[in-house]
Structures are given as C-alpha cells and as structure tokens.
Amino acid sequence: MSTGEKLLQALIVVAIFFAVVTLILTLTSRVRSRAGELIQSMAFVLPAVGLVGVGLLYPAINSINLSLKDKYSTKYVGFDNYKTIFTDADLLRVLGNTALWVVVTPIVATLIGLIYAVLTDHARFERTAKAIIFLPMAISLVGASLIWKFVYDDRIGLLNAFTDTVGLGRHHWLINSPWNNIWLIVILIWVQAGFAMTVLSASIKAIPTDIIEAAKLDGVGGLKMFRFITVPSIRPTLIVVLTTITITTLKAFDIVRQTTGGNYKTSVLSYEYYRQSFQSANWGLGSALAVLIFVLVLPVVIYNIRQMRKLEAR
C-alpha cells in the first residue's frame, strides 16, 4: 500500500464507523413503544460493551482457565500454580516488590503532582512549568527507560557522577537490592506525576470562590487552607487519579523489562507474567500471575464503586 492509500484507509474506517453508528442511532430512535428506552440504551452501550467483552472479558476468563492447567495447557492441575506462587521464594519476592510499587508509585506521584500544581498555580511561567512536568507522559516507556539508563549507569550515569563528586562514592544502583526497586519506581513516578499534576491542577482551579472567601473570613490561610479547603474540595479527583495510577502501576512491565530484565530481585507481577508465559513457555504459572493482578486490583475497584455510590446518594 502506498502512503496515500494507508491514510485513505484510516479515513474510510472512520467514515464507516460514523455511518454505522448514525444508522443504528437513527433506526433505534424511531422506536416509540415502551421498549423504546431499552432499545435506545442498548444502541448506546452495546457497541462498547461488546468490544470490551471480546477484547478483555473473554481473555480474562481464558486466563483463569489456563491458570488452572499445567504449563502446556493440556491438563488441569487445580490450584498448583497458585501454590507455587505463594511458596516459591523468588515469586514471593515478586509479590513483595509489586506491593512496594503499588503503594509507593500512586501516592508519591500524586503528591508531587498536587504540590507542583499548587506551587505553580498562577505563577509567572505556569504553562511552561506544567509542560515540563507533563513531557515524560509523551515519551514511550522504552524511551523513558533509556533516559534513565543515562542516570543510573555505572560508568556514564549522572547519579554516580553526582554521588562521587559529593563524596558518597560510586554505586551499582540497579544491582543493590532492595534499593534498586526504589530507583525503578522513580522512573514510573517521573512519568506519572505529569498526569496527576494536570488533572489535579484543573480540579484546583475549579474550586468555587465562595468557599475560599468564607474560609478567608474565618481567618484560614496558608497550609491550613491547603489542608482543610483545597484537599477536601478535590477529594473525588484525587481518588480518580490515585486509582488510575494504581492500575497503570500494576500493569506496567516495560520499565523492569528494559532496565534490569527482572534480575537483581526487581521483578514484578506484570513482568513475571510476561517472562513465564513468553520466555519460559509456562502458560499455567504465567496465567496464574495474571489472575493475581486482577485479584489485587479488586479492592481498589470496590473502594471506587463505594465512593461512586456515596456521591450518587447525595
């Protein structure tokens, strides 16, 4: 295909998409019977639900099934794969590392994003200042890992040059456990803080002025204002940001893959899934690790749903 044809194909698919959607919406909106609302709502949600069902739900169920089978997916072995995860020393460490990632990344990234959003709000170079923090979001994780190689590298890394100059000596940052986990987490924080900052900044700007006026009259200011007015006002947004980053963290495998390859006790669940399934061809164990990722996010999902219910109730 030539260049023009490829772009033409892209336009054709968009045109077809809108033609089909228009057709469905027009046809269903004609139905005026009692079932009308039901049929119309189906026209609105079913395309998305169907795609999600095929693309995510079915593979998820498939994984659960595979996780109960042996490595060649030929016979059922019950919960053996899960037993392995919770007894094997290396895999237990993977679980521990994952816990560290999931606790540290969302909290620190959100905190930095929030502080930076407050500090630069209405500052002189606000837009530039914000673009700087957002920039890492525009870089692929492969690119980000490369950027940080130039920081952590033994010989040509910035960090060693720095610690050497200030008299702390040179270190193998990526080898020495358990600190190496923190250095890897820093990379993801560096990427995600921009997302947190941008969303939170928008939310902060929308805090109604009357609330602030009232607080001012009561003599609230400074840190107290931040603690008692700003943070509570943007609480729902904070939850959304924390949730999104938590889920991203659990799924991110590129950073570990590109920097340490899971060596030096740095592997996490998502990377271990990839390694067991695609490298060691152990689909049973790999799928069990993936299922564990779903299970770990469940509390986050449940918490969010309860929050949504609470808001709805008001």
């Binding site: 194909q9 054709i12 698919v13 077809i16 998409f17 395309p47």
Partner: peptide, 12 residues
Amino acid sequence: VGKIRRGAATVA
C-alpha cells in the same frame, strides 16, 4: 457488535 464490525470490515 460482531456483525457491525464484520460488516465494517467487509465494506472496507
């Protein structure tokens, strides 16, 4: 959904 999609593919 499947039909729409397949239909789309056919048209394309």
